[in-house]
Deep mutational scan, measured.
Amino acid sequence: MSIQHFRVALIPFFAAFCLPVFAHPETLVKVKDAEDQLGARVGYIELDLNSGKILESFRPEERFPMMSTFKVLLCGAVLSRVDAGQEQLGRRIHYSQNDLVEYSPVTEKHLTDGMTVRELCSAAITMSDNTAANLLLTTIGGPKELTAFLHNMGDHVTRLDRWEPELNEAIPNDERDTTMPAAMATTLRKLLTGELLTLASRQQLIDWMEADKVAGPLLRSALPAGWFIADKSGASERGSRGIIAALGPDGKPSRIVVIYTTGSQATMDERNRQIAEIGASLIKHW
């Protein structure tokens, strides 16, 4: 067993022997300050990975656009099909120029040879490739089937209704393509630590998230040396920005953090900075 597999395998073990964890309200002060700075709603939740206990939250049951954070859930659904023998990570999918949508930095380079399901999930999570996400959605039956998968997991909140890039419209009070911080955190925890996926698939999912290449300005920018993070960011219209992450010190994840914001007129750089500052406060008061 590799060191990485050993780390994931021990998560349920540590759950039975973990020391108590305590929240620090200073982080919530920073979350509220971020709302003021951005002139927008901010949703935040911090969940103990082992016990599932909510350590701190702000607007945990308000809806926010999922943006590209849905791609982790999508690849979780794909992996569940792999575990059930209904899909193969090595299966090659061919597509055409007509399938390409905006922001497809990986898939646009493989029009001649296609990409495997594994490569598409990697592109969707690590590079947030939109065409990769659409091709993967097709393999499971579309957005409604992803919503059904989540319902079967016990998540009756999170929903995907449209494809890339339309799902990023982020219209106020529109429940399409939205989640709540509490629902997303719970669902992510189930995918990473529960029995829904095999150990190999849980490890694959967290490996893809750990290799995320487009979330550098967010929580990763505040991460001390030696800390672990596996994450997925998202951005969409109407000043929306978000990130879902499993992180912790000593090279292993111990908490789930979900941050969403929407309705801001601030620049992308400012939205990134506010999320990074929330992360810095979280780490300082860990």
Rank of each mutant, 00 (worst) to 15 (best):
Q4R: 12
Q4K: 15
F6S: 11
R7C: 08
L10W: 08
I11Y: 15
F13I: 09
F14Q: 02
F14S: 08
F17G: 10
L19F: 15
L19T: 10
V21N: 02
F22L: 12
F22V: 08
F22C: 11
H24L: 03
V29G: 14
K32S: 07
D33Q: 15
A34L: 05
D36V: 14
Q37E: 11
G39T: 06
G39D: 13
G39S: 08
R41A: 06
Y44I: 08
Y44S: 00
I45L: 12
E46A: 08
E46G: 01
D48S: 05
N50K: 15
K53A: 15
L55V: 09
L55R: 05
E56N: 05
S57Y: 07
S57T: 09
P60E: 15
P60S: 13
F64L: 09
F64Y: 03
P65S: 05
M66V: 09
M66T: 01
V72I: 07
C75G: 07
C75I: 09
V78G: 00
L79N: 01
S80W: 12
R81L: 08
V82Y: 05
V82W: 05
G85C: 08
G85W: 04
G85F: 08
Q86Y: 12
E87Q: 05
Q88N: 14
Q88W: 13
L89V: 04
G90I: 09
R91M: 02
R92L: 15
I93A: 02
H94Q: 13
S96I: 06
N98S: 14
D99H: 13
D99E: 12
V101I: 10
E102Q: 12
K109T: 08
D113R: 11
M115R: 02
V117L: 11
E119R: 03
E119D: 08
A124G: 04
M127V: 14
D129H: 00
N130T: 05
N130S: 04
T131S: 13
N134R: 01
L135I: 08
T139A: 11
I140A: 02
K144T: 14
K144E: 14
L146C: 01
L146P: 00
T147E: 05
T147L: 02
A148G: 13
F149T: 06
F149G: 01
H151S: 14
H151G: 13
N152S: 14
N152I: 08
M153D: 05
M153H: 11
G154H: 04
H156D: 14
R159S: 05
L160R: 06
W163A: 06
P165D: 02
E166Q: 10
E166D: 12
L167V: 11
N168H: 04
E169L: 10
E169P: 05
A170C: 13
D174T: 02
D177R: 00
D177A: 01
T178C: 03
T178W: 00
T179R: 00
T179M: 00
M180G: 11
M180K: 11
M180V: 11
M180T: 14
P181G: 00
A182T: 12
A183Y: 11
A183T: 08
A183K: 04
A183F: 05
T186D: 14
R189A: 10
K190E: 12
K190D: 11
L192V: 07
T193S: 13
G194M: 07
G194A: 10
G194W: 05
T198F: 07
L199P: 15
S201Y: 08
R202E: 07
Q204H: 11
Q204T: 14
I206Y: 07
I206G: 05
W208L: 03
W208A: 01
A211E: 14
D212H: 06
K213M: 10
V214K: 07
G216K: 07
L218D: 02
L219M: 03
L219C: 01
P224I: 01
P224T: 02
G226E: 05
D231F: 01
K232G: 00
G242T: 00
I243R: 00
I243Y: 04
I244V: 14
A245V: 06
A245T: 01
A246P: 00
A246T: 07
A246K: 01
P249D: 02
D250S: 09
D250L: 08
K252M: 10
K252Y: 11
P253L: 06
S254L: 09
S254A: 10
V257A: 02
Y260E: 00
T261H: 07
T261M: 09
T262D: 13
T262H: 08
T262I: 07
T262Y: 06
T262Q: 08
G263I: 07
S264H: 07
S264R: 05
A266Q: 10
A266C: 11
T267R: 09
M268W: 10
M268R: 04
D269K: 11
D269E: 14
Q274R: 09
A276D: 07
A276E: 08
E277D: 09
G279S: 06
G279D: 06
L282M: 12
W286C: 08
